[in-house]
């Protein structure tokens, strides 16, 4: 049984022409896999390494650097919500927003709601400081966010952009 679907394998292979070597596809491949499976399993790493002619440790080395990718023991929920804690957001209530959301959901940053609906993350500057405090829902920014809006995201079908 392959950990990667034929579609993902094909998509990875379709990137071969973009770069002069295959190792450069590491990051795109990790993104593809995490997007499809909510994590990057050990088996998936082996298959990525195989497709890119690398040792699996090289893939893991790169993968763990970013703190963005999850292994199979820490899969993501349906939505991944990042709350910004950098200076611009801190100055406009980012810390309180995060603390309040954590308290109300009984979550710590990095954890997922028990129903798997939402993973809550700490973020460094999201690049939307004009709308502080801001959050990122999967890869869509939401500006000038309040506690209730984040809490709504934790409910099934909650939130508008997911």
């Amino acid at each position: 049984m392959s950990a990667l679907s034929p579609e993902i394998r094909e998509k990875i292979i379709s990137y071969y022409g973009r770069y002069p070597n295959k190792q450069a596809i590491t990051l795109p491949a990790l993104h593809m896999v995490q997007e499809a499976y909510n994590c990057v399993s050990r088996e998936a790493i082996n298959e990525i390494a195989d497709l890119l002619e690398l040792n699996p440790t090289q893939v893991v080395d790169t993968m763990t650097f970013y703190g963005f990718f999850r292994d199979e023991h820490h899969p993501l929920g349906k939505k991944r919500v990042w709350v910004c804690r950098s200076l611009s957001c801190m100055l406009r209530g980012g810390d309180e927003l995060l603390a309040e959301v954590c308290d109300r959901l009984h979550l710590r940053p990095g954890q997922t709601t028990p129903d798997g609906e939402m993973t809550l993350e700490l973020a460094e500057c999201l690049g939307a400081c004009d709308g502080a405090p801001c959050i990122l829902i999967n890869d869509e920014l939401q500006l000038k966010v309040g506690v209730e809006e984040v809490l709504a995201l934790a409910k099934p079908q909650g939130g508008s952009k997911s």
């Binding site: 190792q23 990051l27 795109p28 990790l30 993104h31 650097f65 970013y66 963005f68």
Partner: peptide, 23 residues
């Protein structure tokens, strides 16, 4: 090419290493 939330990739040679699939 999509990054993965690491500030250091804004440093030009960090970006190049990341582009090449490395830390």
């Amino acid at each position: 090419v999509r990054g993965a939330c690491a500030y250091i990739c804004g440093e030009e040679t960090g970006l190049i290493e990341s582009l090449e699939g490395k830390r």
